[in-house]
Design a binder for these strands. Structure first.
Lengths: 155, 155
DNA sequence: GTTGCTGCAAATGATTTGCAGTTAG
DNA sequence: CTAACTGCAAATCATTTGCAGCAAC
């Protein structure tokens, strides 16, 4: 999927190519496979473009989903993440929290560690991988610690 | 996972076994693998038991998630579905060779490395994982090296 | 009796929608 | 021009929380 394809789709549906839409589309195009929340999009837009109403962002996201340009995945705490899917079936490694069900992509940097680990420990030259980690994310861990402390201080 | 196990977990955490909780747990236990929304639980409870406050239902669901009795998956429209997971076989991590297609199980020992890596680098407490590595296994690698040397000596 | 639990109502927070003014085509 | 778009503020809707009364242990 290319930028031009998206603009074509917009024209085909007699949708307008406004500056706001163009920027939002570029954010996705520049980070294929990376999930963004609506808030994150708003933040990036503020930096790269100027203030854009959240309503506009949500409406653009809905439009892009209708055009099958981005996909939505809803995480545990009620927030949604939107992303420009990768072309082929290269499955990105994610961590899924067993508490809040949030799924976070594991940054590529950190995966080099797996590669060198596989090479040195298993004598296996890593070319590609599929990986899903299940566990407790930082946010939930902190929340539970806080709760536990709260309970203790009461007693 | 059995009903009794859940009640045990409740006791272990000095949580009370109230009629509302018992019924909700039974609904899940009677339909393993079936997803229910909070509203659906409320509806079933009304039929089988009597009115139960939605707040109670949500609080019970949170409790059951903490006890790892049910899992939550959030669907596109912002609603969450909860379910008693099916007992599935723990999927072992394997390495698949792209040359000979051989698949080798990754020894558990080596996976502890991943766990500590996830904890230190990602601040994520690993509980379970699914992992498939694609690459070149040692045997194929050695065979290719031998060939390459063979060609060199000819030329 | 104590905690912990429940129901209610009010609060929250992400997403949506109505509307009046603005702009791309 | 004019239909489509934007920003704002108000509205929704699932979920959470404060609180007073209630009930398991």
């Amino acid at each position: 999927m290319q930028l031009a394809d998206v603009f074509q789709k917009l024209e085909d549906g007699s949708k307008r190519i406004t500056p706001q839409r163009e920027q939002i589309i570029r954010i996705f195009a520049d980070h294929p496979g990376q999930p963004f929340s609506a808030e994150e999009i708003a933040h990036l837009m503020r930096e790269r473009f100027g203030d854009v109403g959240l309503a506009t962002i949500y409406r653009t996201l809905e439009l892009l989903m209708d055009l099958e340009v981005v996909t939505r995945e809803t995480v545990g705490d009620g927030r949604s993440h939107y992303q420009w899917p990768l072309d082929e079936g290269h499955k990105h490694p994610v961590m899924i929290c067993l508490r809040c069900q949030s799924s976070t992509r594991i940054p590529e940097d950190h995966l080099r560690t797996v590669g060198s680990w596989a090479l040195s420990v298993l004598e296996f030259q890593l070319v590609d991988y599929e990986m899903t980690l299940y566990g407790i994310c930082r946010v939930c861990h902190l929340r539970e610690q806080r709760r536990r402390r709260g309970r203790e201080s009461i007693s």
